[in-house]
Structures are given as structure tokens and as C-alpha cells.
Design a protein around this nucleic acid. Structure first.
Lengths: 336, 336
DNA sequence: ACATATTTTGAAATGCATTTCATATGAAAC
DNA sequence: GTTTCATATGAAATGCATTTCAAAATATGT
């Protein structure tokens, strides 16, 4: 049974026969306290399982040691995340924050508007925020940036953004997909994704730019998706292939999830992947390597991403103004 | 630019020309304050964007309104979650907590030992904990339960557990898989998973019990996995099929991820799924429905799971002692 | 109009740790 | 043996909101 009356610093002070400030200094490893005293206090504290009350500490320190992490639930169905990539990212961020002893406050789907986040910030629930996914909420993010709360966003880095963005080089990702297709003499390009997402828009742009620059007249078509779920991609694939005059021979999907949905539909219709249609996804989610056929994809290093997001945010908290950053972006060829 | 000097309750009191306690009462919607006064105070507070300092509030209230959520990172590779199921669960919990206005503190991989969690608890970082995945850490959980911290665990419910467990009916899940196989006249059963995980052990037990009870002499074999990753399942599949005298005609995998890895290996070896080998997975992750062939799997309702986990924990926080609970467990047949 | 009950309000105490500032102790310097 | 300095320690103030308790204001009853 734990002690009913929670133990406070006063108790430890009394037990160690020193004053409260001395205990405080000992616990925070201050040089202002004698080494022996420090050890003594520490041992007493340990013996009684004492841990400083974070809330009192935070009240006094005026910081929270907490970072709010907000996920773009709106881009998913029924507020349930359907793309595992975002969780890879979360794991990376979680690890990076843990290494800095920062707490991670996960902002629930119903706390994802400017007001809620602003309240969290001004009530000292978090020192800053990391947004995973710029997606459909650019205007919300712009609005939130005006509040002056420290923030970093996973998304599409670009000039003149009112906040610091970290992301893969989406333009390059699209270009690599195009080059990959061109090398295989594909001509009938289909881009799959929702271009109203700025990250996705850039991927599409990369694909188109590279295709046009090559001089080989490729056909460029789009399938616009309404959210990030398998389901939409699946439905959209069927719909598109039903009415397409000539089926594409090269599909670049904004995510592996979408790529997998398309491949499944293609195979159901008797098309061979990659022989008839070459498909490139994005993110290199774990499933991509084990899907059959294995998916060629653009990998973003989520571990590095988490680290970089956290690093930039810490810089902002130190009153620096870091520039947006790009993480390694590489094509992982698997469908040969 | 936000105000440099953060605004406090005293400021609002002065601005509204009332005393601090009145402001406090108005903001907490206390009946002890006159309705007009309340509205007036509220409007002043809103006008100045005032939000109560959570840390002061929590210090006074002696509660934190925060639940720590701990994920079993050890069961995954390199501390990176490889099975999306756990995230589905996280999303469910996040939503349920959000509905109750509870903050979700995500415990990082390096804060997952008894000491760290105990420190979080006794430093008033969280009122209670939800553990997602019992897995390999039963002894840790038993140890932690002794500290008396309120906790609920996603795992295998059973009698005499020192803590409250919520989970699917793993035994039933295994039985359903067995029945499904038997109906197809399969005889050569392979169980895939790490039986030192108690959840997984029960699934295996369900499979074996039902197989034996049927009277039809089935062959029962195991492939033991070392972690939750695709990779291990993939490697294990190859290794097993290399040395198996007769390949199994029925595989029950502890997760869809593992099922997908096995299917991939089977197909690579020219075996047909489900004609030659029937495969049943677990969890019904989104990818399962879109994998080719679609995977027959045991679905656990993560939304309900999140809700139930949170509900039980709230009961514990109210000093009740809820019994362990089971969520809906059903076979989703897809490979026909 | 007066006593009593009810509703509102505010002063002060409280929760717990940190920081400032002053004091005490011991060491070094003369 | 006094003065000076560095080091170590503690009393009291502080951060911000909530709660207790007493006082004030208002309403009710006769």
C-alpha cells in the first residue's frame, strides 16, 4: 500500500534534518550544496520513494517540459488513422522527445482546433507543438502560427511559411518516380492522391515536371482521393479503371496504402504488376516490403524526421528561428 | 504577439472588478456565484484569452487529469512499432480519453520501466496508466501493480490477475480459427507466434483445444517468433518451410502482419493461398482487407477496446474495483 | 420594521517547490 | 588573532488557483 499522505519536500527536509531549499538544491543537482549533504538528502529521498511534484515544479518554473503532438485526424476516416505512416512518425517523435526528457501530450482528435490548442498552450499544458501532417489544415496552422505558440510541422517545406516545416523533399520524390517510370519506357502516367494537400501537390508537381522535362510526351492523369483510407483508394481505383479509355502503365500513389489498394484492383482485373503497370508508392511502410508484389516506394526516414522535428522545436523554444528542413528522400526499388 | 506578461486570475479579477475566488467560481461553473456576475467574469476572461493555469490548478486539486499510456516497445524491433494494431488501439484510447477531457501522456520507449512509471505517478504526472500490450512484460506489470498506481492493461483477461485487464477473448479466437480450418477439412495445423506472450499463448491454446476436442487427429506444430516484426515472421516462415517434412495446410498466425509475411513466403514457393494453405490472422488491421489474397482474421474492436479500457480505469480512479473485461471477438472470413 | 434565512462575496490559508537574500560556518590571508 | 573571502545553509517570498470561513447583501416571514 502506498502512503496515504503523499510525501512532500518538507517531509524529506525534516527526515534529512536539513531545510527545504537544501533538499531542492540537492535534487536538482545544484553546485550550491555540499557534496555530502547532497548524497545524504538523495539517499533519504530515494529511501522514501520521493519524487518532486511536477505540478508545483512547473508552476514555479513557468515551463511545462511537455510538447503537444497533434495528428491530422481529419484526413482520415471516422477520426481513426488509416495510414500507418503517421504512427511511424509518432514513434520517431516519441523517442526523440523521450531522449530530452520531454513529456509527450498526445492531442486527441477532438482537441485539434486552434482554440483547443491555444488553450492548452496558454494554460501551460505544453511549451510547444509538433503537428504531424500539414494536410488539409493549412489555414488552421496559419491561424495557429499567429498565436505565437512555438510550433513545428511535418509537411511540405517551402519558403515564406509562417512556421517551421520539416518534411521529405516531395518534389524530388515525384521526380524520382517519374524517372523510374521513364526508364521503363512508360508513357501513361496516373497520379493518385489529393492535391489539395500541399505535400501531395508537390509530389504530383515533381512527377509532372520530370515527365515534361524529359521531352517524351507522356499522358498525365489524376485520381483525386477524398481521404487517406484504403477504402477511398480502393473505390477510386475501381471507378477510374471502369471509365478509363486506356489503363495507365505507370501509377504514382501518394502513399503505400493507396498503392496497395490500386495494385489489388489491378490484379483483380487481370492486369499484371509490374509487367503491365508499374506502381510507385510513398513512405515505405513496413507492409510495403511484404506486400505481393513488393512495392517500389519513396522512403522517408521517420526516425530522422522525429529527431529533426524535435530539434527544430527546441531551437524555437530557445528563441532561435530555425529554417525549415528536409529529410532524406530516396527511392526504394522493389518491384523488379 | 502574445502578451509578454502572462495573464493570471488576479488580473481577470481586477479587470472584472470582483475578487479572485469569484473568478475561480465563475470559471468552474460553480453555483455559488450569481448568474450575472458569472457571465460578466466569463466574458472578461474570454475577451482577454485567459485560460486557467493547469499546473497551479493541478497542484491545488491534487489530481492531474492525465492518463499515462504505455506501449510495449520491447516487443518490437529497435523500439519502433512494427504492428499497426497497437496504433489502432492507441487511437481508440486517445479518442475515449479526449471525450472525458483527460490528457494523454504518451510514455516513450525509454520511460517504460517500473521506476520511470512510478516516478511519473508519484510526481503527479498522471493519475493512472493504460498499458497497451501485456506481452513480454508480465513481471514488470505485476511489479508495477504492487505500487498501487491505478492501472488497466490491454492483454489477456483472466482470473486472479493483480490488475484489471481488457482484451479480446483470445481462447475463443483460437477456437474459431480451428473450427474454420476443420470445416475445410484441414489437418496439418501450424501456429505462428511467441507463446511466452500470454495473449498469444491463449490463442494457441484455443486452437489446440478445439482441434483436440474435434476428435479428428490433427497435427499441431508451432513456429515461435522472437518479436512482432514482419521481418521475423518472414525469416521464420522461410526457415520453417525449408525444413518442414510436410507443409501445413492451415496456418493460424498471432497477427495479420505475421499472416501476411507467411502468405508472401508461401506464394513465393508456389503454394496457393487459400487453396493449398488456409491462413488465419489476428487483429483485422486495415491492410488485411486489401492484401491479396484478402486475409481471414480475428477482429478485435479497437474502438470499443479504447472505450472499455478508459472506462475501467475511471472506475478504478473512483475507488471501485472493476473486473477484467472482454471485448467482441469475431472471425472475419475473407479468403473464400 | 425587525428578526431570520439565504444567497453572494472576499480575505486569508493552502497546495508544493524554487529562488532570493541574509546569515552562519569554515578556510585562507595578513 | 583578526580580517576577508568562499562556501553552505535557511527564512521568507513567490508562482497561481482553490477552498474555507466569515462577513455582507439580499430575500423571506411575521
Amino acid at each position: 500500500m502506498p502512503p496515504k499522505q503523499p510525501i512532500t519536500m518538507d517531509d524529506i527536509a525534516a527526515l534529512a534534518k536539513v531545510s527545504k531549499p537544501t533538499v531542492s538544491r540537492a535534487l536538482s543537482d545544484s553546485p550550491l550544496v555540499n557534496e555530502q549533504t547532497k548524497q545524504h538528502v538523495l539517499s533519504v529521498a530515494r529511501k522514501h520513494g520521493y519524487a518532486v511534484n511536477r505540478n508545483a515544479q512547473r508552476l514555479r518554473h513557468k515551463n511545462t517540459n511537455t510538447i503537444g503532438v497533434s495528428i491530422d485526424f481529419r484526413s482520415h476516416r471516422k477520426n481513426h488513422i488509416s495510414d500507418p505512416f503517421i504512427f511511424e512518425l509518432l514513434a520517431g517523435v516519441s523517442e526523440a522527445l523521450g531522449n530530452l526528457n520531454q513529456d509527450l501530450l498526445l492531442c486527441a482528435p477532438n482537441h485539434n482546433d486552434t482554440d483547443s490548442l491555444q488553450t492548452i498552450y496558454s494554460s501551460r499544458g505544453a511549451d510547444g507543438f509538433i503537428f504531424l501532417g500539414q494536410g488539409h489544415r493549412e489555414s488552421m496552422l496559419n491561424e495557429f502560427a499567429l498565436t505565437g505558440a512555438p510550433m513545428v510541422v511535418w509537411g511540405a517545406p517551402r519558403e515564406n511559411s509562417p512556421y517551421c516545416v520539416v518534411g521529405s523533399d516531395n518534389l524530388l520524390g515525384g521526380q524520382m518516380a517519374a524517372e523510374y517510370f521513364l526508364k521503363q519506357r512508360r508513357r501513361n502516367f496516373l497520379f493518385v492522391g489529393d492535391p489539395s494537400h500541399c505535400e501531395i501537390q508537390r509530389r504530383r508537381q515533381g512527377l509532372h515536371q520530370a515527365a515534361e522535362k524529359s521531352g517524351k510526351s507522356a499522358i498525365l492523369e489524376d485520381v483525386v482521393l477524398s481521404d487517406f483510407s484504403y477504402e477511398s483508394a480502393f473505390d477510386a481505383a475501381n471507378k477510374h479503371l471502369d471509365q478509363a479509355k486506356s489503363p495507365p502503365d505507370a501509377i504514382f500513389a501518394y502513399s503505400d496504402t493507396a498503392a496497395m489498394a490500386f495494385i489489388r484492383v489491378l490484379v483483380d482485373r487481370g492486369l499484371r504488376v509490374p509487367e503491365d503497370v508499374s506502381v510507385v508508392g510513398y513512405n515505405d511502410i513496413p507492409a510495403a516490403a511484404f506486400f505481393s508484389p513488393r512495392i517500389t516506394t519513396v522512403r522517408q526516414d521517420t526516425y530522422q524526421a522525429g529527431k529533426l522535428l524535435v530539434k527544430k522545436l527546441m531551437q524555437i523554444l530557445d528563441n532561435k528561428k530555425p529554417r525549415s528542413g528536409t529529410i532524406k528522400t530516396e527511392l526504394v526499388v522493389r518491384d523488379t
